[in-house]
Structures are given as structure tokens and as C-alpha cells.
Design a protein around this nucleic acid. Sequence first.
RNA 1: GGAGAUGUCGCGUAGCUGGUCGAGCGCGCACGAUUGGAAAUCGUGUAUACCCCAAAAGGGUAUCGAGAGUUCGAAUCUCUCCAUCUCCGCCA
Length: 434
Amino acid sequence: MLDMKWIRENPDAVKENIRKKFQDEKLPLVDQLLILDEENRRSITEASELRAQRNTLSKQVGMLMGQAKKDPSKLEEAEAVKAKVKANADQLAELEKREGELEEEIHHILMVIPNIIDPSVPIGPDDSANVEKERFGEPLVPEFEIPYHTEIMERFHGIDMDAAGRVAGNGFYYLVGDIARLHEGVLAYARDFMIGKGFTYCIPPFMIRRNVVEGVMSQTEMDAMMYKIEGEDLYLIGTSEHSMIGRFIDQILPEDSLPQTLTSYSPCFRKEKGAHGLEERGVYRIHQFEKQEMIVVCKPEESMGWYEKMWRFSVELFRSLDIPVRQLECCSGDLADLKVKSCDIEAWSPRQKKYFEVCSCANMGDAQARRLKIRVKGADGKNYLPHTLNNTVVAPPRMLIAFLENNLEADGSVRIPAALRPYMGGAGVITPKR
RNA sequence: GGAGAUGUCGCGUAGCUGGUCGAGCGCGCACGAUUGGAAAUCGUGUAUACCCCAAAAGGGUAUCGAGAGUUCGAAUCUCUCCAUCUCCGCCA
């Protein structure tokens, strides 16, 4: 979400940015917005004047009423003034209604106009134009065949999709034994990894109210993702970012509390409506998963520095688990409207012989803060908008796919990298059941 | 979940028989005076958003948990919601 004032002064830059994002259909919105803004400001001025009039007249009534206690003839005068105010009431009501409409229309358009992308973002229409920036670790393909991830899990008696289907339906899973432990081990390791980087561990609410949901996503996104609790004003979060960033809505933060570097854990619930459905077998795309996330709220001038650090944390973590990864930068057309710059960390799949997304790191600039009215009280006493960023640390069980495929041995056992051993009871390897 | 109480400008409070209350007082904070320096004292100031104004100065509107209503006019009255506290119930 951009600043209306800024758009007013830089409509061409806004249009240029829309073109760069291949959203030409939104170009007319800019001029439309400028017209609406003009009208809105006119009606605000007009309505303010009417209110000012009403306020002074009402004060007169008060005075007259006071005098009327001594001099009853003043009562008539007071009634006359009252009538005068009433006469203007309709006009004001109408203006107020129009004001409301205009504001809504403007807000609606502002939500749709994309954030100004960073000059470094590669230009391209869609995800096919995303750019591989760097690889970390050798993407090896072993001699032996790597089975599908659920098959690896089954060898450990580690997954029961059939029962999950009967109990909860498609898109759910039972993780069992070593695989379940591995799942939690990865989360615990990721948590400690981030704490080691100076982040503050945080467990947020897993359900949030509608007004918070509306703050953090659009209606369309909401319909496609969020589960609602029947009979309550509560929704299951799709990621901890929802409740984490919700924590700051409408708040004015003291400057010395920045940067806020948080790492949050939560289960995530997603309908995945309209996505690729749940066609992908296994635990790649599911209704429920768990995630360790990183969230940063910082001064504007520091956000790019944090962005670099954050995606590198993901790389470091995956490398410490012997998983080859690459950084894939989102091109302009694939960048979500709120984001200034973002990249995915993709893990190597020796089975598919390609990389697949495991982390998504984004710098939102001040757009999210503006939308949610998150402000910082500066040293000079003035408030300003901070920048917000987020990135995945790990999101198992999807992350387990990368882990199992890359650490599988020819004999069917799975190596446990040194970093993870403390979370697996010290084991250096886990072996299949049969 | 049941009963009661409460929610005011950073904090603590006054106001809550509707007008002179955007809001008094104390603390805190900032600046100034005083001082060799400090403490103390005195003085001044101390929210957010938006609109008008080229800008500054200045002016205006809105905000007393949130929303709606009554009224010429609401911090003050009514309703709904939210939160907090106390007691009871129920559970990890």
C-alpha cells in the first residue's frame, strides 16, 4: 500500500512501476484514484466547515439556554438557532455519506496498486523469469534411486496417509515414530538456530479475529486460505506472520525497540483453494503444517541489510543439514503487490533433479506498516513507518522432503547431520523398520 | 460459562445530575530561567490522523476501549461488542 500523498505527487512513477510488473490493466486506476482523491479532499474540507458551523451554533444554544434561566425570552432565540442547525444537518449527513464512499473506493484502489519495487528487481512477466542468483552446495544425484518422499517415510513406518484421509480427509497426515521426531527435531533445531542469531522466540495465537485477518490479507486471499471457526469470530492462522504482525497493528513503537527480530513457531492451516489443489501427492501441499518463521520490523534504512541477512540465515540452516539450495530472486511480475523485493530459497531434490521452494523471504518496505498503521516514534518526536520483512526458517513436513531425499543412504537409512543429532537423541542415523 | 466492578491525553487520577471539556491536577518528559555545576525551585510546553494554506505561521475537523444510537450539542445518557479486575463454576 502506497502513500496517497506520494501518489499524488508521483503518478508517473506509480504507472511506470505498474508497467514493470506487467499489470497494465491497473494503469487507469491511477488517474481514477487522483480524481477520487481530489473529490475526497474537497468533501472533507466542505464537511469540516459544516461541522465547524454546527459546533459554533451549538455553543450559542448552550449560552442562550444558560441565559434563559434568568430571562425566559432567550428560550425562543435558542430554539431558532436549534432550527438553523437542524436545517444544515441533512446536507452534512449527505456529505458524510459521500465521504465514506469515497474513502472506501480510494482504499480499495490503494490496496490494489502495487508497491514500488526495488531497482534491483529483475523485470519479467511471471515466475518463468525468476532469476537464479547463487547455488550453495553441490546438487548431487546419487547412483541409487531416490523414492518418492512418502515411500521413504513408509519404510520407517513414519507416515499414515490412509488413516489421515479417513479421519480428517485429503491433505492431512499422521507422522509416526522417527519421522515425527525428525519433524519436531527440525523445528526445535531451527528455533535454536534463530535464537543463536539473536532472534527472540515467540509463540503467537493460532487463531485470530476477522479484523486482524482483514488487515493482513485481501478478501480473495482470505477466501482461498483461511479456515473459520463456526459460531466464533475466529480464524485459524495460515502462518504465524498473521498473528505476529497483528501484534503491531495500530501501535506506535518506541524507536529504541527496533529492530524487532522475532522468530515465531506455529501450526499453519490452509484451505489451498484454487492453488494447484492437493494434486501433488504426499506432504508437499497440505492443509496443515508447522512453521518456524522470522519476522523483522526495522528502520527503513536498515531493511535491505536485514533482507540479505535473512535469506542467508535460511541458506546457512539448510546447508548445516547437508541440503543443497539455491537463491531464486522473484522477478517484477512474480512479486506480490505488497513486496519491494523477495526471493525464494529452493532446496535440491535429487529425485526430481530440480530445486523446489522451501523458504520465501520478502521485504515489504513500509507498505505493510502503512496498511496496518504500525508506526515508530522517532528521536525527533515525529512518527514514521518502519519496514517489515519476513522469511521462512523451516516449514515441515515439506522441509522433510528435502531432508530425507538428500540424506538418504543407499542402504535405505537416513543420515542425521551433526547439528540435528541432539534433537534425535544423539543418533547419527535412523534405519528403516523392515 | 455465571455474578459484580472497571476502561479518560506516556503513567496515576478528576470529570460521568449532557454545553464554559480535547479535557483539570499530580508524576514523568522537553526546553528556558536560576546555579560555578547539580539538586531543589520557578516558567513554558508536552497526543494521533486528516483537511485548508506554495511553505512556515496559523486555522479547521475527528478521536475520552471500539462501534452504533438519542440530541442543536455526548467523556458524560442508551444499545452492541472488546478488554481488564474480583468472586463462582469448569477444565490441560
